[in-house]
Write a protein that binds this DNA or RNA. Structure first.
Length: 877
RNA sequence: GGGGGCAUAGCUCAGUUGGUUAGAGCGCACGCUUCACAUGCGUGAGGUCACAGGUUCGAGUCCUGUUGUCCCCACCA
């Protein structure tokens, strides 16, 4: 047998093990009618992406669930893939081209796309390699891409179906425009922030009068497109002006004063300039009052020809000059500092401009309704369920979805325009001839679709939909989606309504939502702050298992978590502990024919206790994982290994291992090995590498732990009574240790124990362990503490009254004080129990077990009280 | 304005459907080169569970309100 290295060094085996898993094909999903499928769709990372901590946590959580289910016997598909990330990628490539001194227009659409695909081939796979470092057990043979053939086909089908039903339309509406990216954005792609700005007060002259009306604006440049000024209908200050015209300064246009409820008379001057083409509210006002819409900003953010002498200026330069000019005309009344919410492009952070533009939209109301109902009816469940509320909130307030983007990298909208008859044709296949007039002069829509339009189809497009492929029939709908709460509006919601609409089924039964990984100070990790920590660096230093554990321990579902190196370190320490405990077992197993299972082993109380604890852990961990309580499962796993197994059972096993009874030693090794082997299986989903590595060294294992059966709870091995009794032995050992510490007795000094007890048998059987762990030389059963002599310390435990003669170390006064304190505590407990039992409501209504427990507790404390009093009396005499 | 989170030990956080004496890690104190592990072992100190009411036999947990704090959405031109 090969020997384990003395220290845990993940670098020695993680890559090797991953390669083996892949080679053996353990990640591959198989359609197996004899098994129940379990499907998880990986949220496809952007091809431009670098693995960050958020991914690391998301991936880890999925991998834990997936490995758990696989070991439980499900036929697992964990579908990986990447997202073309239309705007993000195009932005990056354009940037790169700019460095080379070329624009995308120089290249033309075709050449640009060719380069983009090249770029994707070259860099897009990087994140995939990074995911492997984490141990992700997804089926790489099915790696998908949102722009591959399958997905593209699904996109066309989906678009066509919505178009056909009139759920997709083209129209001029106010949309968010990013002048830097040169494209429209959806509402969700705009991020607002409180920016410092100004409030400029402008006076607009009233036609045919000396009077002026003062308005306030944060965007002076938009005044070029003003087509009215609005006041509140009930505002007496302006009542006489309603219906009159103003002369728009700098432009000279006559614009009316209109009355509209939208105006807040308390805010600003109570008069609002109306620019229907550049403000969503003004747009509405414009519709109500039939105002002309004058667009004054071009796509690149400069003033267009409507801006007269300001035409061609950048929006900010125009703003400056307009303010200056208004000032020189004496029409600038005042300027105030003003912070207001400014929309920024999600991708490039440029200030977005609301602009009236002809775009494609998805009608949301008919799609949102079934998506809400599905969650209401629990066809899909959120974990934690509070996220359902957030989901409702989004869908209930949703507006039509702007899906067209003025970009090249993406799915081109499958609509053709006939240049001869003007027909608009939407088609699943490319169209060459106009079906209306037979003309061949067709022009395909230039725009591409929002990236999220294709991501929304991910759960089924990757499986071959609209084709009824075997994969689709077997693996769809998927079981659980794991993602962060920040993605609910972008993705979760859209997959829901898309799945329901196209497949008639919810795309997933569960949605496991997690929070953000923040930095040590609780700040969001971000590029601009430079506070991000690279998971790969952490893996290189501590190993993937440590990183994985650190990301899920002590984390409640849906809550944000802070990443600290200290957490990784303690995870590493834990794994090191497992490593060494395993090494201990294997060292002692050398040359021993270790039993394959527990059959035929004569179990000691300690054996039964640890087996009982193992079973409890199996039950708790399985239950917690079933509810996606990964943090709780991890805690239970760590507690069992460290406290029960290492601190107690390993120590308890030593007398047998080092003793001279070969049969006893063999039996003990059988138990050690049984517990360790099962424990490694329990831990495997969390720490796949180290468990696989150790598993390979165990005497009775073959093959990979990854495909082993997950341990099952066996009530025959629960040994509840015996385990409980054994806790008394542990309690006794702890009591002796504490006594020694209290009197400063050196730990190495062996002491004699005098016990007044009714549990002589239990103690005798565990004599060796008690002596070793309590640091004692002998145990004597006595009828009273007097036998231990005068200079003793004592303690009452569940199973015994322990006396330890410690000679000159004992300070009788201090000992009396200690006993008195203990007595006081016990007395309080008795009073508490009595009060509870005297409460008629409690006795009548509480579950019987609780009442019985309370009675037993009272008896126990009364007994302790008696002993303590006795001892105190003895010392006082 | 709408929605949501959080408030528990010095720090970071758990706490299942309400039910023993509220837990962990780190930190702290004291003591340990105990033959798997100092990435360790033992023993301990440390909490009016933000505040005020309510429901209940019983509240960290459920309800109402208050305060503080954070996030998302909408938004005042």
């Amino acid at each position: 047998m090969k020997e384990m290295q003395t220290t845990y060094d993940p670098r020695a085996f993680e890559d090797r093990i991953y390669a083996e898993w892949e080679k053996k094909g353990y990640f591959k999903a198989k359609i197996d009618p004899a098994k129940v499928p379990f499907t998880v769709m990986m949220p496809p990372p952007n091809i431009t992406g670098q693995l960050h901590m958020g991914h690391a946590m998301d991936e880890t959580m999925q991998d834990i669930v997936v490995r758990f289910k696989r070991m439980q016997g499900y036929s697992v598909l964990w579908q990986p893939g990447t997202d073309h990330a239309s705007i993000a990628t195009e932005h990056k490539i354009v940037e790169k081209l700019r460095e080379e001194g070329i624009s995308k227009e120089d290249l033309g659409r075709e050449e640009f796309l060719r380069r983009a695909f090249d770029w994707k081939e070259q860099y897009g796979g990087k994140i995939v390699e990074q995911l492997k470092k984490l141990g992700s057990s997804c089926d790489w043979s099915r790696l998908a891409f949102t722009m591959d053939e399958k997905c593209s086909r699904a996109v066309r089908e989906a678009f066509f179906r919505l178009y056909e039903k009139g759920l997709i339309y083209r129209g001029s509406r106010i949309i968010n425009w990013c002048p830097d990216c040169g494209t429209a954005l959806s509402d969700e792609e705009v991020a607002y922030s409180e920016d410092a700005g100004h409030f400029w007060y402008f006076a607009y002259p009233v036609e045919g009068s000396e009077e002026k009306l003062v308005i306030a604006t944060t965007r002076p440049e938009t005044m070029l497109g003003d087509t009215a000024v609005a006041v509140h209908p009930g505002d007496a200050r302006y009542a006489s002006l309603v219906g009159k015209n103003l002369i728009l300064p700098l432009v000279g246009r006559k614009i009316p004063v209109v009355a509209d409820e939208y105006v807040d008379p308390e805010f600003g001057t109570g008069a609002v300039k109306i620019t229907p083409a550049h403000d969503p509210n003004d747009f509405e006002v414009g519709l109500r009052h039939n105002l002309p819409m004058i667009r004054v900003l071009a796509d690149d953010g400069t003033v267009n020809e409507e801006g007269g002498k300001f035409a061609g200026l950048d929006r900010y330069e125009a703003r400056k000059q307009i303010v200056a000019e208004m000032d020189s005309l004496g029409l600038l009344v005042k300027v105030e500092a003003h912070t207001h919410n400014v929309g920024h492009c999600h991708r490039c952070n440029a200030t977005v401009e609301p602009i009236v533009s002809k775009q494609w939209f998805v009608r949301m109301a008919p799609l949102a309704k079934p998506a809400i109902d599905a969650v209401m009816k629990s066809k899909t469940k959120f974990t934690p369920d509070r996220f359902a509320k957030i989901y409702y909130n989004w869908l209930e307030n949703i507006r039509d979805w702007c899906i067209s983007r003025q970009l090249w990298w993406g799915h081109r909208i499958p609509v053709w325009y006939c240049e001869d008859c003007g027909a608009e044709i939407c088609s699943r296949e490319d169209v060459a001839v106009c079906p209306k007039c037979g003309s061949a002069h067709l022009r395909q829509e230039e725009d591409v679709l929002d990236t999220w339009f294709s991501s929304a189809l991910w759960p089924f497009s990757t499986l071959g939909w609209p084709e009824e492929t075997p994969e689709y029939s077997y693996f769809y709908p998927t079981d659980v989606l794991v993602t962060g709460y920040d993605i609910i509006p972008f993705w979760v919601m859209r997959m829901m309504f898309s799945g329901i609409r196209y497949t008639g089924k919810v795309p997933f039964r569960d949605v496991l939502i997690h929070g953000l990984v923040r930095d040590e100070q609780g700040r969001k990790m971000s590029k601009s702050l430079g506070n991000g920590i690279d998971p790969l660096v952490v893996i290189a230093k501590y190993g993937a298992d440590s990183l994985r554990l650190s990301l899920v321990t002590g984390v409640a579902p849906g809550n944000d978590t802070r990443f600290t190196e200290a957490k990784v370190e303690s995870a590493r320490n834990f794994i090191n502990k497992i490593w060494n405990a395993s090494r201990f077992v294997l060292m002692n197993a050398k040359g021993v024919d270790v039993p394959k299972d527990l059959a035929g082993i004569r179990l000691t109380p300690a054996d039964r206790w640890i087996i009982s604890r193992l079973m409890a852990t199996v039950r708790e961990v399985t239950l917690a994982l079933g509810k996606y309580d990964l943090g709780i499962a991890a805690d239970k796993l760590i507690d069992f290994a460290w406290d029960d197994f290492c601190d107690w059972y390993v120590e308890l096993s030593k007398p047998a291992l080092y003793g001279n009874d070969p049969e006893r030693k063999r039996a003990t090794l059988g138990v050690l090995n049984y517990v360790l082997e099962n424990y490694l299986k329990l831990l495997h989903p969390f720490a796949p590498f180290v468990t696989e590595e150790i598993y390979g060294y165990l005497p009775n294992t073959e093959g990979s732990i990854m495909v082993a059966d997950y341990p099952r709870y066996n009530s025959k091995l629960a040994y509840r009574q015996e385990a409980k009794a054994f806790e008394g032995v542990i309690d006794l050992i702890k009591a002796v240790r504490a006594m020694k510490v209290e009197v400063n007795c050196p730990p190495a000094k062996k002491v004699r124990l005098f016990l007044v007890t009714e549990a002589r048998r239990l103690i005798s059987v565990n004599r060796g362990s008690i002596l070793r762990l309590a640091g004692a030389s002998e145990i004597e059963f006595v009828e009273s503490g007097a036998a231990a002599g005068e200079k003793t310390v004592s303690k009452v435990t569940e199973i015994a009254h322990v006396f330890v003669p410690l000679g000159e170390l004992v300070d009788i006064e201090k000992e009396k004080e200690r006993l008195a304190k203990e007595l006081a505590r016990v007395t309080v407990e008795i009073a508490r129990a009595e009060a509870k039992l005297a409460n008629e409501g409690f006795v009548a209504k509480a579950p019987k077990k609780l009442v019985d427990d309370e009675k037993a507790k009272k008896e126990k404390y009364l007994e302790m009280q008696k002993k303590l009093e006795e001892q105190l009396r003895l010392l006082s005499d």
